[in-house]
């Protein structure tokens, strides 16, 4: 028993044989969680698909009310943050712990900017009386489909913004931890890699929400 334990990699839990096996199990667990997230957003995406098929012209008209510039900038922000997270994980594998805190801090900052722009956009829509159920006055074409479009918009982007906010908190905690100590233990590598998977997933969701809401209307 003692010889078997001593032959194991440092930092490996008792129930794993090697560090790779431990890392793989953690990655697998994270993907099980992400599969539930895929289904969570998937139900909303399915609803969106059905209603867009039912009200194609209405969704095109409603999409012209969106600020395409903010949507595009926010996509660029999330793609950049994803690069930073991927770099942080890469630095963890390379043993360059000091660079990780910078990447995680910038990721959290970009997340704050993303949600800031999102809430600014919500504010402009609410000021334009485009808040279904509370204050919705729209005199353009297809008012019913426009109302439906904005219900889906607030729910889907709102839940996504909540995921970004959770990610910001996670990456702020990681930043503080890596500023306190840049020592890279197997456990810290796994946590960083799994937090990275979460952030990339949030990025992927937005990659689809961007054309769903901002790019339906053409030629504007």
């Amino acid at each position: 028993m003692s010889s078997a334990a001593s032959s194991k990699d440092v930092g490996v839990a008792d129930h794993f044989a090697t560090l790779n096996q431990q890392h793989e199990a953690a990655t697998l667990g994270m993907w099980v969680f992400l599969a539930t997230e895929i289904m969570f957003f998937g139900t909303m995406i399915a609803s969106y698909t059905m209603y867009r098929i039912t009200y194609p012209q209405g969704f095109q008209a409603a999409s012209l009310l969106m600020d395409k510039t903010i949507g595009t900038v926010n996509t660029a922000i999330l793609l950049t943050s994803s690069l930073l997270v991927a770099l942080a994980v890469r630095f963890a594998h390379a043993g360059e712990g000091r660079k990780i805190a910078l990447c995680t801090a910038l990721t959290a900052l970009l997340g704050v900017v993303f949600d800031g722009l999102k809430f600014y956009e919500y504010g402009t829509h609410i000021a334009d009386h485009l808040l279904p159920g509370v204050d919705f006055h729209y005199s353009g074409p297809f008012p019913r489909a426009t109302r439906l479009f904005f219900v889906l918009y607030y729910v889907m982007t709102g839940v996504h913004a909540l995921h970004v906010a959770i990610g910001v908190v996670i990456f702020l905690i990681l930043t503080v931890q890596f500023l306190r100590s840049s020592k890279l233990t197997p456990r810290r590598r796994i946590i960083l890699a799994n937090c990275g998977l979460y952030w990339h997933f949030v990025d992927i969701v937005w990659i689809f929400l961007y054309p769903f809401f901002y790019l339906v209307g053409r030629g504007s």
Partner: peptide, 17 residues
């Protein structure tokens, strides 16, 4: 194995849609 688990979520999402 990880790829299968990752693909399952997208597979069932495609079934749903």
């Amino acid at each position: 194995l990880v790829n299968v688990f990752a693909g399952m979520g997208f597979y069932f999402l495609s079934l749903l849609i």
